[in-house]
Amino acid sequence: MEHVNQAVAITPEISFPHEPAPNTKKIWKAFWALLILTIAELALGLSHYAFHVQGWVLMFLKGLMIILSLSKAVYIVSIFMHLGDETRNLRMAILVPLISFAWFIFAFLWDGNAYRNMRNRYDVPAPTQQVAPAVVPEPGSLK
């Protein structure tokens, strides 16, 4: 058996199993990339705490953190999970259904935002600075 240097026994259906990579250079490169990306994310996350940024700057920082997370996901999936070494058919079978997430995210976040707008327009505003004891209405009263 020792002369067959392969991960899986060859069957007629499966023609080329993964060959072992010559060294672990690629893995450690991915590790450093992940570490640097995580530290960058952390710096961005802490910066809006330290500088109290608001408005479009905050949106920009959040967008940047999302992009950094997605690039971390690319490293994990393509190198650690070896999807980059698989056939194009398998890659597409896994990745194409995930495109539907674009619509899920858009639709549900839009919905949540619309809900907040309706709540602010039609509901009594939630007390944020109330210090006085709340008046509990008598059961059966109209107030």
């Binding site: 802490l46 997430f101 899920f104 995210i105 976040l109 949540g112 809900y115 709540r119």
Partner: peptide, 29 residues
Amino acid sequence: LMSDTFTFGGLIIAYGSIRLGHNYWPDAN
């Protein structure tokens, strides 16, 4: 794993939707 991705994705998107529906949300920091 793909089906699990959709499970987690559903949970996290629900979280995002509910969070956007609130005027106030706690700051993780």
